[in-house]
């Protein structure tokens, strides 16, 4: 360890901004695969500790009784340059954890909802979640071998997506495919910004 006070503290401004994108969808839809394919680091998992309002908690006087649980989040990293680092977090698939998605989605730039055409209904809840919270998302149809190939428009209808939500076809095992999905998301963010006229709004008035 460097030994001293003669070493100036490094300025925080020199550090990159971490950007969070969520990779959601039902169990087995390819979230972990998607994250791992794109990540420049070996697959990592972090335990986020969550404090739930538990039905079993009837004491109001102390933290000890709060139901605390942890969920494991797979994540990966894509260094975009000296100023930005993108982190992809695979959301836990189990619906019983969804009470804490508020915490997970806080500060997220947006989300990718992966869908498997053999069980599209597994992604309903994720779509619903992001819609309700106004978190921008794209739907990426993960094309599994042997699954019926659908047109993006058929998926849009089945998931009852609003017209502006992009639907992309992808293969979570292929890096360029995952990058294209992320590009769809970013372009969607840029487009919706412009159409809402917020480019002209002063910074303090931004939602």
């Amino acid at each position: 360890m460097p030994s001293s006070n003669d070493c100036d503290p490094l300025p925080a401004e020199a550090l990159p901004v971490g950007i969070k994108v969520l990779i959601a969808g039902g169990f087995g839809v390819g979230k972990t695969t998607f994250v791992n394919t794109l990540s420049e680091i070996e697959p990592l998992s972090t335990e986020e500790m969550l404090t739930a309002v538990s039905a079993a908690t009837d004491r109001l006087d102390g933290v000890e009784d709060k139901a605390t649980t942890t969920v494991a989040l797979d994540f990966g990293r894509i260094t975009l340059g000296p100023a930005h680092v993108l982190y992809l977090f695979g959301t836990p698939g189990q619906e019983r954890f969804w009470f804490m998605w508020d915490e997970l989605s806080e500060g997220a730039l947006g989300a990718v909802v992966l869908a498997d055409t053999r069980r599209l209904e597994h992604s309903f809840a994720a779509v619903d979640f992001f819609e309700r919270r106004g978190i921008p998302f794209v739907v990426a149809v993960n094309e599994f071998d042997g699954a019926h190939r659908y047109h993006a428009e058929e998926v849009r209808t089945a998931l009852d997506l609003r017209q502006e939500v992009p639907v992309a076809l992808c293969d979570a095992r292929v890096q360029s495919s995952g990058i294209r999905v992320l590009l769809e998301l970013i372009q969607h963010l840029i487009t919706t910004r412009s159409s809402h006229g917020s480019d002209t709004a002063p910074p303090l008035l931004r939602a």
């Binding site: 901004v17 950007i19 894509i78 975009l80 340059g81 100023a83 930005h84 993108l86 508020d102 989605s105 806080e106 500060g107 997220a108 730039l109 947006g110 919270r133 106004g134 978190i135 921008p136 990058i179 992320l182 590009l183 970013i186 372009q187 963010l189 840029i190 910004r193 917020s198 480019d199 910074p203 931004r206 939602a207």
Partner: peptide, 20 residues
């Protein structure tokens, strides 16, 4: 922006897009 989606600025989005 706790609990809400924070609308990022256009420069950030374009930097991310170009890097991708």
């Amino acid at each position: 922006s706790p609990g809400h989606y924070a609308r990022p600025d256009r420069d950030l989005l374009e930097a991310v897009r170009d890097a991708l």
